[in-house]
């Protein structure tokens, strides 16, 4: 009995180390993630400008105002579009490039991989500012080339037109995030057994058939994870939009994070509306949750395939 007690105590001591080592992370998570989330729920019930203690309780008025604001839904639609572009354009395009760059016979493939990954590690704000300069209708490099080659007789207003601004920013967002999707896919491709591909090749299967009937089914579980990660990332796009257009012109590129930022921090607001901005954040979080849950069948499929 005494031996058992000693063993239990020793085990506890050993586990204690785990908790001690986890403590900094738990404290950081509690202080910088959990607390802000809980606090934003609380603040969303107040008419509060972010200074001092919130005192003016307004119940669900902020939530009603957000849910009935056309600008919020317009921003949400734009955020959702970013996700759709990521899922339906970036994801398949990155897969195609990954398959291409996974070919050992391709010379310089590591250089290509590096070139496609460099935008990922470049600061988003810098990318935004550089593209604003490149696309500028006045002396911007892109318009200068178009002008010089006679392709246009007046500059293209990439970021100033409500028609072109959103697709332009989305295109740059796609380019910026493309490398990470590519890396995901390259990692996924390593899970495809070479023997399977070689056997199919011996059986005379063409390249497309190998991709369709071997690679895609084998990679499906990982693809679903990639899809979810990409969806989440794209829905929260903020820094690129803020750096390039700040949601303009006339809110045509406004996404929910820039919408929230404007109400909480914009100098245009004589009295910032932190409570309202928090309510918008809570609703956005819930909508994101719902959209993620809608992908539950895909997760179930992944579980089934993995089993």
């Amino acid at each position: 009995m005494a031996v058992r007690t000693r063993r239990t105590a020793a085990k506890r001591r050993e586990y204690l180390w785990c908790y001690v080592l986890l403590l900094p992370l738990l404290l950081a998570f509690g202080g910088f993630t959990l607390w802000p989330i809980v606090a934003s729920w609380w603040y969303s019930f107040f008419d509060w400008d972010g200074v001092g203690t919130p005192t003016e309780w307004v119940g669900v008025a902020n939530f009603i105002e957000v849910l009935t604001a056309p600008d919020f839904w317009s921003a949400f639609w734009h955020s959702f579009l970013f996700s759709l572009v990521a899922l339906f354009i970036e994801l398949p395009l990155a897969l195609a490039f990954a398959i291409l760059l996974n070919n050992v016979r391709l010379r310089g493939r590591n250089m290509y991989r590096l070139a496609l990954f460099v935008p990922v590690v470049t600061t988003t704000a810098v990318v935004g500012i550089v593209f604003v300069a490149l696309l500028d209708p006045v002396r911007g490099a892109v318009n200068e080339v178009l002008f010089a080659t006679g392709l246009v007789d007046s500059p293209i207003n990439f970021l100033g037109s409500t028609v072109t601004a959103l697709p332009t920013v989305m295109g740059i967002d796609l380019w910026k995030g493309f490398g990470i999707s590519l890396i995901y896919w390259l990692a996924a491709l390593q899970t495809v057994p070479k023997e399977l591909i070689e056997a199919a090749q011996l059986d005379g299967a063409r390249r497309f058939a190998i991709v369709r009937h071997i690679m895609v089914p084998v990679m499906a579980p990982i693809a679903i994870v990639i899809m979810l990660l990409l969806f989440q990332r794209s829905l929260g796009t903020f820094d690129l939009v803020q750096a390039m257009t700040a949601g303009g012109p006339v809110y045509s590129t406004d996404v929910v994070p820039t919408y929230i930022f404007r109400y909480a921090f914009s100098p245009e607001m004589q009295a910032p509306r932190y409570g309202f901005a928090c309510a918008a954040g809570v609703i956005f979080g819930l909508l994101t949750l719902v959209l993620t849950l809608l992908q539950a069948p895909a997760l179930k499929y992944r579980k089934r395939v993995a089993a």
Partner: peptide
């Protein structure tokens, strides 16, 4: 009719006097 300079929509005040 294009009389306003293309791209003004995304300008700040400093860009106006610079251009």
């Amino acid at each position: 009719d294009g009389s306003l300079i293309t791209g003004w929509e995304s300008w700040d005040s400093a860009r106006s006097y610079t251009e």
